[in-house]
Nucleic acid binder design. Sequence first.
DNA 1: CGAAAATACTCAGCGCACTGAGCATTTTTT
DNA 2: AAAAAATGCTCAGTGCGCTGAGTATTTTCG
Lengths: 165, 165
Amino acid sequence: MAAVDLTTHPGHLARRLQQAHYLLWNTMVSEEITSPQFAVMNALVAEPGLDQRTVGERVGLDRSTIAEVISRLSRRGLIDKVRDPQDGRRSLLRLTDEGARVHRKLSVRTARMNRIFLAPLSADEQAVFFDLIQRVSDAAEGLRNPTEPPTEPLTEPPTEPLTKA
Amino acid sequence: MAAVDLTTHPGHLARRLQQAHYLLWNTMVSEEITSPQFAVMNALVAEPGLDQRTVGERVGLDRSTIAEVISRLSRRGLIDKVRDPQDGRRSLLRLTDEGARVHRKLSVRTARMNRIFLAPLSADEQAVFFDLIQRVSDAAEGLRNPTEPPTEPLTEPPTEPLTKA
DNA sequence: CGAAAATACTCAGCGCACTGAGCATTTTTT
DNA sequence: AAAAAATGCTCAGTGCGCTGAGTATTTTCG
């Protein structure tokens, strides 16, 4: 008998929160377009012509997942995908007219859903909610992405200044 | 140009939080046993002999998902699964000795991981963090599970008492 | 220039998560 | 007791999410 209390486990809470959101999204926003798909479309509204990897970075999806999400959006005719003539490795992405239309429609519904989802919290609590989750996520991301904070700046050791010159 | 700010979208934040947790779990707890698998084992430590559906209910996994998770735990020899002789529909579950051993080991590591994961928050903030997420999740779950709260209390309408008699 | 390294993407494999449909076994009704 | 409903589980299908390996294209460097 040494069972643990999962209500103090952030991972478990995060999963439950996401599940709850998933269900609400399905009933209030769309059964066709998922939340990650919407996030990708949204990134392309903000910055049309991004390549696949960068979009993934913007919305927090790894290379494999973003590829699949994009393939679905593309199959539905919501985004265009073309090889970059300047760099044959890249795929450049942008919304189609239909994609832009769908994005507008879903934006409205998403806002409505978020209001309902967050209704149990006061405005102040909502702000705290965002802040806390974000801080935890950012910190954890930092743990994985050493970011190589210049252990010894690539520029150079304190021998001589060169940005100066 | 009507892109939305995803940092105020709880669904997006929940996904990011879970991803961050997933990565940390993998490096600090186990590469074999996942967080949902641990949750299932934990439920069986608390209540040995539960049937599959109830375990799913305890940890928040639907019938299909719980079936897969259990099949993996079973394949690894961490849980036992037997048909209920009283009710041929049910599968009764309990940890094997090895399962109990693994659960103990992971409990320690999980506690350590949670400390690090939550380190960016003060003790007070951690309490708020749990509370807010839980309230939002519970409320959203309530939206889907009508629970049939006695539209008109089953006890009785104000016309005449009948439990009386 | 040509080999080596970096970069963008694809592919296969595993695992979580949900729905809808189907099967077997109770339980309830008639 | 037979028909109907409920219950527990399985199966097929879709989608997110990660890793490791592989391919093609650029960039860098000797």
